[in-house]
Amino acid sequence: MKKIVFLVLLSSVLAFHAQAQKFGYVDMEYITSKMPEYQKAVREMDQFSERWAKEIQEKFVEIDRLQRTYMAEEVLLTDELKRKRQNEIKEKELEAREYNDRVFGMDGMMFEKKKELMKPVMERVQRSLEKVCDQRRLDFLFDKSSGIVLVYTNPKHDYTDYVMEDLGIETKPAAAASAVPSDPTSTNPINQNSITKKPK
């Protein structure tokens, strides 16, 4: 009986603390898609990736050429020349695999380049997230575009626009802006911020 009472009390305390905490979420994928510096970093990463992939492909094309040449000339070669050609091909294969691992492996050149290009952008986003959490008194802020499964999200807890505003990103959708009719006789123009900003 005492155990049941303890569990009920514990549940009540946890429920009370959960109610006292303020939660929110943002769509990081949407935010970064609107950041020119993020898109620039992605383009630069793609350029490095393509260049390195081309270099690796060229290495394997050369290996394939050496193998075909060896097979065509094998019957004319002495045992010593055969061994020499085979060793040359094996060395080239090992070199190509090692270079591939050095570029695209864990903690490889591509990983380091991504860190280098993305760090300033993500640090800026992080500062903005912390600022919004502080201003809105949030205890937890989730990223709805990450692997976290959110089966339901109330739009009033969406702080994406606040983060975008702090980053200086236009939050007004272009389609919505063009859909608003311009009435030159109107004396009370519509405040676009009131359309896109989610009430708190």
Rank of each mutant, 00 (worst) to 15 (best):
T160H: 05
R124Q: 14
R136P: 00
K119C: 02
I56M: 00
I190S: 02
M110L: 07
F60N: 00
V42M: 15
S194Q: 12
E123V: 03
K144E: 00
K114C: 11
A179I: 08
D161A: 08
P155W: 03
R136D: 09
Y38M: 13
V121A: 03
S33R: 11
K113C: 02
D166H: 09
K197A: 10
K84W: 06
K156Q: 06
Q135H: 05
K115H: 02
P155D: 08
V8Y: 04
I195R: 08
R136W: 00
A175V: 12
D161L: 03
P199C: 03
P189M: 07
A176F: 12
G105K: 05
N154Q: 12
I89Y: 14
A177V: 05
T196Y: 06
D143G: 10
K59S: 07
F111P: 01
E130N: 15
F111V: 04
I4E: 09
A179P: 01
R68S: 07
D107R: 15
V103M: 05
I63D: 03
M164W: 06
N154E: 14
K172I: 07
A175L: 15
T187I: 13
Y38G: 06
T171I: 12
L129Q: 01
S194L: 14
V61N: 15
E80Q: 11
A18M: 02
K90M: 06
K59F: 12
L77E: 00
M28Q: 11
R137E: 12
E73H: 01
E58D: 11
N100L: 09
Y162T: 04
K115N: 10
F140T: 10
P181N: 04
D79P: 08
L150W: 07
N100M: 01
F104M: 05
R102E: 07
E73M: 04
S186Q: 08
M164G: 01
N188G: 11
L66E: 08
A20E: 05
L117M: 04
G108W: 01
D134E: 08
G168M: 05
G24F: 02
R124V: 15
E112G: 04
D183Q: 11
K156G: 05
D166L: 06
E58Q: 10
V121S: 08
F142T: 02
A176Y: 07
F23K: 11
A18K: 01
Y162A: 10
P173W: 02
K3R: 13
Q135W: 07
K40N: 09
F104D: 01
R83T: 13
R43I: 12
L10Y: 12
C133I: 04
Q21R: 14
D183T: 07
R51P: 00
L10W: 06
K84G: 00
L77S: 02
A174Y: 03
I169K: 03
K82T: 13
P184G: 10
C133K: 06
L76D: 13
T187F: 09
A96H: 01
T185V: 09
V125F: 09
V42A: 15
V5H: 05
M110I: 11
A20M: 07
M164S: 01
R127G: 12
T171C: 06
Q67E: 11
A53C: 02
D101Q: 07
R65S: 13
